[in-house]
Structure formats: structure tokens, C-alpha cells
């Protein structure tokens, strides 16, 4: 088991390296850098001016070198000019002797995530603060989504073709067909709009970062949860119906086990193995929903700054966001692998 986790972690780190490199290359493509130079300098820069700006700020090195520096495995760049020395790890313009006092490596491994050009703050501060907001949102979403999805799936799947099955399946198909930006708009229209009159909730969740209440926080949570819920519920239902037709359920029935006990003791564990993986693999999509909902409800979380960073070509911030989200996704995948093995005795003991 230990070896298995070790191997999976190795693969995970490799994946993370590949993905961050891809993100790094995409954000550091020349047109992006040019735009950066123009926003930092001025918009009427000549091509030569852009080139020299990039030179001065270490952007014209080869991609791999830049990546290494950003990661913190290569020493940060320095640039000698008439005014003094500037560099990746150097704050301001300093003399050569002063430059020696700064650390040579300063990448994300050293905890240096860079500086956000949009928010004019250190990226790490921004990311941690906003991540906290989003984690709170995600936590509530999971709390609402997973149990209700599993209950719906199990109830629908335990008697295939029954009334409960048909009505619950209809509900779950409907929710899978409603992406967040549709359900969010409909909810806002019905529950918050001043024209219709049902002013139950607030259409904006901006205040929820400080003071989450049912009124301002429920709709965003519901919107994300609903879309994912249908999918998980359908998976659970499929898995449950399959288990309920299995031979060993018939064995249990013909042993005289009562129906509720069959469902709880015999079917449930077997039926939950498949959806467990699904729930964990839902995370990349959940992140999707988070971005949409945070934009829609103006909730200043992780997804909200993603939109800001991407819209404003804030390279360092975008990179940090990518690293964190890729990391979250990979960790959930790891948990899903381990959990699958744990839930399934066929694999655990062999």
C-alpha cells in the first residue's frame, strides 16, 4: 500500500510539473509579454523599447530557464545596468555588493510567488485569502451536493422503474442539463429580481466573504451543487441498479433478508465504489462552476481573481492560480485512487 501511494505521488508530481510548464509557456508567449510590457510601460512603446524592457526584466531568457527560475531550481536572473543591479530576487535597484545579500533562488519552492500587477499585492497573500473564500464555498457545496446526490441515486436505483426512480431520474437529468450560468440566471430572476417580487435571497454574494448568511450565500451554493448533483446521482443510480440485479443480492433476498437491510448492508457499499471515483473526478468541473458562480454572484473568491488575472494579463497571479488549482485536482485524484482501493476489498487484499 505504501509503495502504491508513493508511486501515485510520483506520477502526480510529474503531472504537476508538466502542467505547470504548459501553463508557464502559454502565459509567457511573446504576445502576452508584449502586452505586459505595454501595460507596465506605456501603450505607445516601439518594438525596440518592448524588447529592451523585456530584456531588463528577465523575460527574454529561454523558456526552460525562466521556468526553472520561477520554480526556484535555477538562480534568479540579474541585470546590470548603469543605475545598478536589478534581478528576480532583488527588490528595487541596488549596488552590486547589496545584490549579494539577496538570496540567489527565489521561485515558488522558496515561497516566492511573485507580485500581482492587477491587485498590486503579493501573489501569495492574494491567493491564500481568496482560496479561503472559495474553500468555504466549496465546502458548503460538497456538504449539500454529495449527500443529496447519493441519497437521490440510491433511492432511485434501489427499485428500478418504480415511481420514485422515474421522478428522481427526471430531476437528475434536468439538473445535469442545466449549467450553472443557466440555473444561476434563473434563480436570480425568480428569487432576487425586483420585478417578479420573490425577494427571498440576495442576487450578489459579495458580502458573503465577510459575513455569509443564508440569504446571501445559499443561492451560489445551490447553483454549483445542482449541476454536479445530477451527474453524481445518475452515476450512483446506475451503479445501484447494477448492484441490485447482481446475483448476491438475490442470494441475500432468498436468505430472507428484508429489503431495507438488503439495501443498507448488502448493496450500499458495493454501489458506492463507482460513484466515489466520480465524485473525486468531479473536482475539475467543480472548479469550473466556482468560476462561473463567483462571477455571476460577484463573490470575490478564487474563481473571481482567475477571471481578473486572465482578463488583465496578470502573469504571476495566473500562474499561481494554475498551480493551486492543478494541485487541488491532483490531490483529489490521489485521494480517489486511495479511496477506491480502500473501499474495494477485492483490490485491497490481494
Amino acid at each position: 500500500m505504501g509503495l502504491f501511494i508513493l508511486r501515485r505521488s510520483g506520477v502526480m508530481i510529474l503531472t504537476a510539473l508538466c502542467l505547470t510548464f504548459i501553463v508557464f509557456s502559454l502565459t509567457n508567449l511573446y504576445p502576452n509579454l508584449e502586452k505586459l510590457a505595454k501595460t507596465q510601460g506605456n501603450f505607445r512603446m516601439t518594438d525596440e523599447a518592448v524588447a529592451s524592457w523585456l530584456d531588463k526584466n528577465g523575460y527574454s531568457q529561454p523558456m526552460a530557464v525562466k521556468y526553472g527560475q520561477w520554480l526556484g531550481v535555477l538562480p534568479g536572473w540579474t541585470y546590470d545596468s548603469d543605475d545598478g543591479v536589478t534581478g528576480r530576487c532583488i527588490v528595487g535597484v541596488v549596488t552590486e555588493t547589496e545584490a549579494g545579500e539577496f538570496p540567489r533562488f527565489c521561485g515558488i519552492l522558496q515561497g516566492d510567488w511573485g507580485h500581482s500587477t492587477v491587485l498590486q499585492k503579493d501573489v501569495s497573500d492574494v491567493v491564500w485569502e481568496r482560496l479561503g473564500n472559495t474553500l468555504r464555498l466549496m465546502g458548503w457545496v460538497l456538504l449539500l451536493m454529495v449527500p443529496s446526490a447519493l441519497i437521490i441515486g440510491v433511492l432511485a436505483g434501489m427499485r428500478e422503474g418504480s415511481v420514485t426512480d422515474r421522478s428522481l431520474s427526471t430531476v437528475s437529468i434536468l439538473t445535469t442539463a442545466t449549467p450553472e450560468y443557466v440555473s444561476g440566471v434563473v434563480f436570480i430572476a425568480i428569487f432576487t429580481s425586483s420585478t417578479v417580487g420573490l425577494k427571498w435571497f440576495k442576487g450578489s454574494a459579495t458580502a458573503a466573504t465577510e459575513n455569509p448568511t443564508f440569504e446571501n450565500f445559499f443561492l451560489p451554493v445551490l447553483t454549483i451543487a445542482l449541476y454536479g448533483m445530477g451527474y453524481i446521482a445518475r452515476m450512483t443510480r446506475a451503479s445501484m441498479t447494477e448492484v441490485m440485479t447482481a446475483q448476491y443480492i438475490r442470494t441475500a433476498r432468498l436468505k430472507g433478508v428484508s429489503f431495507p437491510k438488503i439495501v443498507l448492508k448488502h448493496a450500499l457499499r458495493n454501489a458506492l465504489i463507482a460513484p466515489f471515483t466520480v465524485i473525486m473526478l468531479q473536482f475539475p468541473w467543480l472548479l469550473n462552476g466556482v468560476v462561473i458562480v463567483e462571477t455571476l454572484f460577484n463573490y470575490k473568491g478564487f474563481g473571481w481573481i482567475l477571471v481578473q488575472a486572465a482578463g488583465n494579463n496578470d502573469i504571476e497571479l495566473l500562474l499561481a492560480i494554475s498551480v493551486v488549482s492543478v494541485f487541488v485536482v491532483l490531490v483529489t485524484q490521489l485521494i480517489s485512487d486511495i479511496g477506491y482501493v480502500f473501499l474495494n476489498p477485492r483490490i485491497r487484499i490481494s
Binding site: 446475483q247 438475490r250 442470494t251 433476498r253 432468498l254 436468505k255 433478508v257 448488502h266 476489498p345
Partner: peptide, 19 residues
């Protein structure tokens, strides 16, 4: 069922609960 009448099936693997 299971008390007075019991049944044995063709596929032993499938008729035992794997978990």
C-alpha cells in the same frame, strides 16, 4: 426463505457479496 427453503446457484463468485 433461507430458513426452510435454501438455494444454491451456478456462479459461486457472483452469489457471494464481494464487499
Amino acid at each position: 426463505r433461507g430458513n426452510e427453503i435454501a438455494m444454491i446457484y451456478q456462479e459461486p463468485m457472483a452469489s457471494l457479496n464481494p464487499a
